[in-house]
Design a protein around this nucleic acid. Structure first.
Lengths: 135, 135
DNA sequence: CATGTCATGACAATCATTCTCAACAATGAT
DNA sequence: ATCATTGTTGAGAATGATTGTCATGACATG
């Protein structure tokens, strides 16, 4: 049963102070930079345990790498800025309703769903495409 | 520009006859089994090109592995049976409307979305959990 | 403090995917 | 049909994330 070790505390604290999704490799490096040496294998084990326990959310980017982020408990989706990583948690029921309607229509049971939105937030869009004062 | 080679023909034909999502490794093995030796690197290159061209859809499973399937052109989502791989293409507008509403509400632009459903189809549910004649 | 486990970490192993680059082959011109 | 051009292939190496191994270390309790 989950002992409270220095490593787990360090990782939990780090995640508490990190608003964006990070990979296990990044978290490992961030801990090292903070002077908290934690083995890479331990970081992997810990974030996976936290994910299973529902304490962090997992996101897979295009190349298959897994990213982790401390999140509100319970089922929800995300809107992530592709430029700065800013993340908004989405709790609405619209997707849930869609999923269960589709499941029913096609006679499937135990239907899980994934739904994630990736876009560019106002700040990054302004920075990249230019401010409203353009021309 | 895109030469028609034995390898590409073989892979296209294979995908045409394969209703479920398959990994590049699986497709490579299936080609070998069919007596059509095609290099693994070529399979990867070809499915990726097809994916970019919109000729196949890509799905990432839990461990990050990429699966490919010949699909209808245009944007759509999938409902996949986790047991047998049976796949239904979903073309409705519900998710699109949800995505654009959320994007607008949070002031994001260029919002892409992914949405996939994984469940158990009627046949597999019956096989696994028992027919209606149980007890 | 002793002690029993669970946890850790250094490193090897795995595995999908990508890269390299010389040999090949599809296509168009002659 | 033959040739030249140039995209394509394939065998294997390289990459990189993730997982496995297992001896050593450290919580938490008696």
């Amino acid at each position: 049963m989950q002992r409270m070790t220095r490593q787990r505390t360090a990782l939990a604290d780090l995640l508490d102070g990190t608003p964006d999704f990070r990979s296990a490799q990044q978290l490992h490096q961030m801990l090292k930079d903070a002077g908290q040496n934690v083995g890479l294998a331990t970081v992997y084990r810990t974030v996976q345990a936290m994910a299973e326990a529902g304490d962090v959310d997992v996101l897979r980017i295009e190349d298959g790498e897994a990213l982790y982020r401390r999140c509100a408990r319970g089922h929800h989706h995300h809107l992530v800025c592709r430029e700065c990583g800013k993340t908004v948690e989405l709790a609405g029921e619209a997707v849930e309703r869609w999923a269960s309607r589709i499941a029913h229509e096609h006679d499937f049971v135990d239907v899980d769903h994934t739904a994630e939105l990736v876009g560019t937030c106002r700040e990054c869009a302004t920075r990249i495409y230019g401010g409203g004062t353009g021309a």
